[in-house]
Design a protein around this nucleic acid. Structure first.
Length: 882
RNA sequence: GGAGGAUUAGCUCAGCGGGAGAGCGCUUGCCUUACAAGCAAGAUGUCACAAGUUCAAUCCUUGUAUCCUCCACCA
């Protein structure tokens, strides 16, 4: 057989792109035909507002690992990719573009505006897709979806109309969160609260009869024009005799009453609250209880409207506030101003301060949906990894509020409701309507609002598979198995998907919910554009390769903990990929002149049996890690198996045989090396997809592509405790002797005679068998395995260890003092351990309560400490005799 | 106010009811015909603090401190 030459340096750019194309063209990402149970995942659809950041990379890398692993288990695997139209966010992007051109969306008109938005969508979609491809995501592009696809739009209408028919969607005039900049209503959870310094203004409201005044505290004096009452707590004895009196609202000629309401906190401020039903959620509720008038003061753009005195009209709230405060002061109404930090809601997309705004909106009644979703959790139909997120989920579900789903935007799914301009009928329909069913008029207009983006996203696990139609995809792949998502969208998305799926289909949309951490910078800050601390996944791939990025993220992704990284972090994965590359490179060069032979277990050496045992253990450990979504554990297992066990010990151990063995021995050695290498590529493929495929293709013993190969299975037969024990001892001996050499500062090239003295038995047989190996590992001129204690070790340097003694025949000057010091320290350490051990063993309670294995283990440890101490003492004596 | 997380080596973080781990960094020696992105040998820890449970606690319980996140409220 000829040697195969790999490029000297690992350079992922040489093959990553090429391999991805090859996989894609070969249809490897499509579900294969198989009798096995399906495995499916829907990708959380990235927004088409921008490009993918490190958080997306983490999320998709983990999905890819799961998907490749499941695929190698032989299942028909479907990973559905797609993108989200992201209503407000995308519309904002386009509006910002227009702004630069000095235009507003109204200047373009709805149709032209949407054309431009589609173009933005296309552009970002293409970038996102190419990013996912560069990362190596093995999603099925034939199944790619977009939330505004025709099919998905149909699903949205189906969902809306069904809910309407079930009485779960209603329209009404309510106080909603409103972003004046975006010009639309927001859902409660789209508001981000931020603590900002502000002022608390104490203002006098005089009694209408001129008999004095009361004082109220407010942070927003400009809303006073919407006041329709002042409230006190009914139990507040200070005010019992003023309840019912009328007040004159300053700066106006309106009169408002003093009322009582339980929500008022007696302790806060003066215990008197101005009630502004149209501009505060609490006041809104209070106003409803008391049938107060709701006076809306705002125009849709956030400026004050005709319900305020003329001089303030058209002003933004903040401008008006200053003026109102001035005027109050001039009128003698202002008592004092104090600093008062409070939480102010901001739009989660543009960060403008949101206003409570009274307007006509559509809502989903959530209570019954939440009950079903809670039941799904209680029944164990969904499981969170890690479980602690279940608290977050249930807490939200149990305190759910109705969901405002209408948005005053253009980009999104139009609400499927039409109004007859002639008879006023409202028509809710799955299909477009052009005739009024009552009066047959064609003078119909569709509701101008669009739906909240999440109203399409919450259908994603089934709308992407064809729902509401009963398609083959839906039949085969729904429900999906696993959802991988970050914790910041549990409310927005995960919870709602479960609600929708339970409501429309009666099943949970997935069983396992894997919650990842967020990616942060090395200082622990969230990566964000404004901080400029983001790391572009593509830059990482350009510098280190997709495998390095994937493996590093996987290695660091521990059980939903946040991942802190900088550019240098990825050296971890890069070094590992490089190691794999170079180990392979070495092995392939050694194929020259060799033949691969069948591997007969009975002919295997202990070392061979050991590496098979290690591989087996790694495979079992990875399997269990993957079943529990413990990605970092899987990555660590792979790392230590391949680097420490295979490269550092097994390949090194094979070298003497490859140099000095017979042809048969060499052929067997190469065959086992290749067998382990081939299996390692399969083992590692989900985690380092490109480099394993590139290598796999060069292996003389490969069949097909690694992406579609089978995953190495755990096989109890290959567990080999004896080989583990023997090789463990050999490693221990090597380490001890190498350490002694290093301490004695013996040059590496200096070959010493070594005598290893131990009792007859398997260990001795093994060491005798592997004498050549020991010579190489110990840099020894000769190794004598001395079971009869017949060798003369007079004057040889003794090495402390357990189960055997070793002697180095070194004639050079030894720093006896330093070595004695080291041994003394060792004695001291072991004496402390021995004391602890003896104390334990003399404790009756320990002997009677502890597990017998634990007691046994403790006894063994005690013996070990004793042996170490006595040997070290012996060795000190020996050194003194030098 | 409620919930959750973090606190382990200089840094970033795993781990776990029975003698403290990894990677990076650091020290020393090696370009050993795969890899200097490497090999070998090292040093470094009151596992935040306090009490409790236990034969045994870094791990379980409770409390304390510091930091972080989410939810709710805030006139």
């Amino acid at each position: 057989m000829k040697a195969v030459e790999l490029e000297k340096a690992y350079n992922p750019k040489d093959f990553e792109q090429r391999i991805y194309c090859k996989w894609k063209e070969a249809g490897e990402f499509r579900p294969r035909k198989s009798e096995k149970e399906h495995f499916s995942i829907v990708m959380p659809p990235p927004n088409v507002t921008g490009i993918l950041h490190m958080g997306h990379a983490l999320n998709n890398v983990l999905q890819d690992i799961i998907v490749r692993y499941q695929r190698m288990l032989g299942k028909p695997v479907l990973w559905v990719p797609g993108t989200d139209h992201a209503g407000i966010a995308t519309q904002n992007v386009v509006e910002r573009q227009l702004q630069k051109e000095g235009l507003r969306r109204q200047d373009l008109g709805r149709e032209k505006f949407l054309e431009r938005t589609w173009a933005v969508k296309e552009k970002h979609h293409d970038i996102i897709k190419s990013q996912l491809e560069k990362m190596g995501c093995s999603c099925d592009w034939d199944h790619e979806r977009f939330t505004m696809d025709e099919g998905l739009s149909r699903a949205v209408r189906e969902a809306f109309v069904t809910l309407y028919e079930r009485g779960l969607i209603y329209k009404g005039k309510y106080l909603v969160n409103y972003c004046p900049k975006c010009g639309t209503a927001l859902a409660d959870d789209e508001v981000e609260y931020e603590n900002v310094p502000g002022k608390l203004y104490d203002v006098r409201y005089p009694y209408a009869d001129g008999s004095g005044y009361i004082t109220v505290a407010t942070t927003r004096p400009e809303t006073m024009f919407g006041d329709t009452a002042v409230a006190v707590n009914p139990d507040d004895e200070r005010y019992t005799d003023v309840v019912g009196k009328m007040l004159l609202l300053p700066l106006t000629d309106r009169q408002i009453p003093i009322i009582t309401d339980r929500f008022v906190d007696k302790e806060f401020g003066t215990g008197m609250v101005k009630i502004t039903p149209a501009h505060d959620p609490n006041d809104f509720e209070c106003g409803k209880r008391h049938n107060l008038e709701q006076i809306n003061l705002l125009n849709p753009d956030g400026t004050l409207n005709e319900n305020v005195p003329e001089k303030y009209r058209g002003m933004k709230a903040e401008e008006a506030r200053k003026l109102v405060v001035d005027d109050l002061e001039k009128g003698g109404y202002l008592v004092k101003i104090t600093d008062h930090a409070h939480d102010v809601g901001h739009c989660y997309r543009c960060h403008t301060t949101v206003e409570p705004y009274l307007s006509e909106q559509w809502f989903v009644s959530m209570k019954s949906l939440a009950d079903k979703a809670l039941k799904a959790w209680k029944d164990g139909d969904i499981v969170f990894y890690p479980r602690r997120w279940e608290n977050t989920y249930t807490h939200w579900m149990e305190n759910i509020k109705d969901w405002c789903i209408s948005r005053q935007l253009w980009w999104g799914h139009r609400i499927p409701v039409w109004y007859c301009q002639d008879c006023g009928k409202m028509i809710v329909s799955r299909t477009d309507v052009d005739e009024c069913p009552d009066c047959h008029s064609h003078n119909l207009v569709q509701d101008s609002d669009v739906l909240d983006t999440w109203f399409s996203s919450w259908l994603w696990p089934f709308s992407t598979l064809g729902w509401p139609d009963k398609t083959p995809d839906f039949g085969q792949f729904f429900p999906t198995n696993t959802l991988v998502s970050a914790y910041d969208i549990i409310f927005f998305w995960i919870s709602r998907m479960i609600m929708a799926s339970e409501e429309f289909i009666g099943k949970a949309p997935f069983r396992d919910i894997v919650i990842t951490g967020l990616v942060r910078d090395i200082q622990g800050r969230k990566m964000s554009k404004s901080l400029g601390n983001g790391i572009d996944p593509i830059e990482v791939i350009d510098k280190y390769g997709a495998d390095a990025m994937k493996f590093t993220l996987c290695y660091l992704a521990a059980q939903g903990q946040d991942v802190m990284i900088d550019m240098d972090s990825f050296r971890l994965g890069s070094r590992f990929a490089n190691k794999i590359w170079n180990a392979t490179r070495y092995l392939l060069l050694n194929l020259e002149g060799r033949e691969l032979v069948g591997i007969d277990r009975s002919k295997l050496s202990i070392m061979d049996r050991w590496i098979y045992s290690r591989l087996n253990a790694a495979s079992a450990s990875i399997r269990s890690a993957m079943e529990n979504y413990r990605f970092n554990e899987a990555a660590q297992t792979i790392y230590s198996f391949f680097w420490n066990d295979y490269c550092d010990w097994y390949i090194e151990a094979s070298k003497p045989r490859m140099l000095n063995g017979t042809d048969d021995e060499k052929n067997l050695a190469v065959s086992v090396l290749m067998d382990i290498l081939e299996k390692s590529m399969r083992l590692m493929h989900p985690f380092l997809s490109f480099v394993t495929e590139e290598i796999y293709q060069k292996l003389p013993n490969h069949k097909g592509d690694v992406i579609s190969a089978s995953y190495p299975e755990y096989n109890a037969e290959n567990d080999d405790a004896e080989a583990d024990r023997l090789v463990g001892m050999m490693q221990e001996a090597s380490r001890a002797i190498r350490a002694a050499r290093a301490n004695l500062q013996i040059a590496p090239e200096k070959k010493l005679k070594v005598v290893i003295r131990l009792a007859e038995g398997k260990e001795a047989d093994f060491l005798s068998e592997e004498k050549n190996l020991l010579k190489a590992f110990l840099s020894a001129s000769d190794v004598i395995i001395d079971t009869a204690s017949s060798e003369d070790v007079q004057g040889a340097f003794p090495v402390t260890s357990v189960g055997f003694e070793a002697f180095l025949f070194v004639r050079d000057a030894i720093d006896i003092e330093a070595e004695t010091k080291r041994l003394s320290a060792e004695i001291e350490k072991n004496e402390a351990l021995l004391a602890a051990s003896e104390k334990k063993l003399s404790n009756e309670n320990f002997i009677s309560h502890a597990k017998p294995e634990a007691v046994e283990k403790e006894r063994a440890k005690k013996a070990e400490f004793e042996e170490k101490i006595s040997k070290a003492k012996e060795h000190i004596a020996l050194l003194r005799s030098f």
